[in-house]
């Protein structure tokens, strides 16, 4: 955006209100419910991996990133391989850099504390909902904080619940519940469809993701797929 365009419109502070946060929490409720289910699985597995209840709650409470926490449980052993777990966490969560960058235009001119405070609550789900809002032309920047903090409550409380419920729950995948988040992502993706310009970026991203998922460990496939998809979109735009 050029500075001339900005000079034309009188500078208005971005809106950041309680009602915006409530709207986010309301829209985030179905996702928070499915996060609760996944969080319970995390709690069950954390107990199985030998973490104490306090360690489980601390991890969910200050890391708040599902995929990397599951990976950490896979690496957890005595003595704890500290460097390996921390480094793997970084790799698994690298995709956040892309997500956070995409929020930049919308968060521009927001006070730093609000921006970087809200970002703690940015998970795939709250980010996807927020981007849907951005595309729909919503103005209240507290949406991410509202949606994300509800998901945070679901994630931390479910970890404790799952830990205490122990092994009595059985295998959630037997009931198809592990598909819940994929189904929600699919619905969100459908909602983002703006026209044929989206077709090739999405197809390329999906294809590259499947190939790298087969070839590389961890969640590199998300970064590889997303980068190739966005590059495809940019190349098509330039034509």
């Amino acid at each position: 955006m050029s500075t001339i365009e900005r000079a034309d419109a009188p500078p208005q502070p971005p809106r950041f209100t309680r009602s915006g946060a409530i709207a986010g929490a309301r829209q985030g409720l179905p996702l928070a419910a499915s996060i609760f289910l996944v969080g319970m699985v995390f709690g069950v597995l954390a107990r199985h991996a030998g973490l104490t209840l306090a360690e489980t709650l601390l991890m969910s409470g200050i890391v708040f990133a599902g995929a990397s926490q599951f990976v950490a449980l896979g690496l957890w052993a005595l003595p704890i391989p500290i460097a390996a777990i921390v480094f793997t966490t970084l790799i698994v969560n690298l995709r956040h850099v892309l997500l956070s960058a995409a929020l930049r235009p919308w968060f521009r001119d927001l006070p730093l504390l609000r921006t970087y405070g809200s970002l703690f609550f940015m998970v795939d789900e709250s980010w996807a909902l927020t981007m849907g809002q951005v595309r729909a032309g919503a103005q209240d920047r507290a949406f991410l904080l509202g949606a994300g903090s509800l998901m945070y409550l679901a994630w931390v409380s479910s970890a404790g619940t799952g830990y205490l419920a122990g092994s009595a729950m059985g295998d959630l995948s037997r009931w198809g519940l592990d598909f819940a988040i994929t189904a929600i992502f699919t619905a969100l993706l459908i909602g983002m469809w703006r026209g044929r310009a989206d077709l090739w970026p999405w197809l390329v991203s999906a294809t590259v993701a499947v190939i790298t998922w087969r070839l590389l460990p961890g969640t590199w496939y998300i970064v590889c797929g997303a980068v190739s998809g966005t590059v495809t979109g940019a190349l098509i735009d330039d034509e």
Partner: peptide, 16 residues
């Protein structure tokens, strides 16, 4: 370019 990120990230998570 940034507008293409959301759909691409979701497609990359969903497909595998």
């Amino acid at each position: 370019w940034l507008q293409h990120i959301p759909g691409s990230v979701l497609a990359a998570i969903i497909a595998p």
